[in-house]
Simulated assay, not measured.
Amino acid sequence: MQYCFCFNYYYSCILLLLLICTAGAATKLQRNESILAIQAFGDSFLDTGNNNHLISITKCNFPPYGKDFPGRKPTGRFCNGKVISDLIAEALGVKELLPSYHDKNLRSKDLQTGLCFASGGSGYDSLSSKINQVIPQSDQLQFFKEYKAKLKEDVGKERSETIIANSLFLISSGTNDILFRYFGTKLRQLQYDVPTYTDLLATWASNFFRDLYNIGARKIAVLNTSPVGCLPFSRTIGGGSERECAKDYNQAVELFNAKLSSQLASLSRELPQSTMIYVDLYNPLLHIILEPNKYGFGISDKGCCGTGAIETAILCNKLTSTTCSNASAYVFWDSIHPTEEGFKSLVSKLVPQLFE
């Protein structure tokens, strides 16, 4: 008991200090600022189909995924419909859907308005991608370089530079690192405590943002990490018999998010002509989960498809999964990812954070 008190006190002090140091340090877009394209990087909250060609279990290009997508088509989005990258692109008036970089049917217009490079299962920690056999963020950067060359060939040097300079680079990452890489392995017991691992994670994140800047990104919006302790999967494995939110998971995320905010504030001062936007996803999603009725949902502690209340499976099983009759009543589609309605409710809280 004494150890727990000391750890929680130490954790609280670190978090408070980080929040004080970064208060008011975030940068934002101007309301009249032109956004010509969306470029998405990171994990499954943004992935629109980049894992489809991989030999990996972290993919979802099969029913019941896509059940409520236009044409009822499973595209590789980890949802019954659209995901965050689609919805933000639509909200900003760029386009209705954000195609994946590996889509074989890409057109010139798709290149000019941006693509998704994100890969479900990836993280700031390169070992997260290796564990899940998905595309690491370093390779996502390489694919973006290839995209830049194709865009230049398509529209010319001057126009391509204008598009990249006026692209919003959207990043979502960290969930796989904390939920699976840290708490899902013996890493925390054998090598790192939470403060040490979140320090490393914040450094890796900062390096990724700097690499993005160095290949042309100037408007970078980073979604902080979700309340992983309140995902249906986490309630099952870490929430005890009552399936409560796993508090230690959320504490780790809160500490990382504070450090992430600090890193972005530092980069915004370091990198000329950069706009580094820290977007709080954690608290809006947590509020939706804890008060679903307030947002028009009935159920937030289990997913619409998969294994029902037990939620030991991460993704829906294409052979055995059953789905609920009304996905819009659920915050979550499977044990990790929100439904399209869940994402829509969340995005309505995220988009206003992009602007001053």
Score class of each variant (00 low, 15 high):
L190E: 15
A327C: 13
H53W: 09
S129R: 01
V155Q: 05
K294T: 09
L354W: 10
D86N: 04
G240A: 14
A327D: 14
T175L: 12
L315F: 14
L151Y: 02
G81R: 11
Y213S: 03
D199E: 08
E161S: 14
G303D: 10
S261C: 11
A246T: 05
I314K: 12
S129W: 05
T339F: 03
E356M: 07
D110H: 08
G240M: 08
K109P: 00
P70S: 11
S274A: 15
T339Y: 05
T275D: 08
Y182S: 02
S234E: 04
C245A: 11
E90W: 11
F117M: 12
T320Q: 10
A23E: 02
I35D: 07
C305L: 09
F69Y: 14
G298P: 03
N105E: 15
P63A: 13
D334V: 11
Y101K: 03
F297T: 11
G306P: 06
Q133E: 08
T236A: 08
R181W: 04
D248H: 13
C13L: 15
I314V: 14
K73S: 14
H102D: 05
F297V: 11
S12M: 12
A37H: 10
S268K: 09
P352Q: 07
F209P: 00
T307V: 05
I35E: 06
L290K: 13
G114A: 03
G123L: 01
Q353N: 10
I310G: 07
A309W: 09
N214V: 00
Q2T: 10
G81S: 12
C21P: 00
G114Q: 03
D68Y: 13
T307P: 04
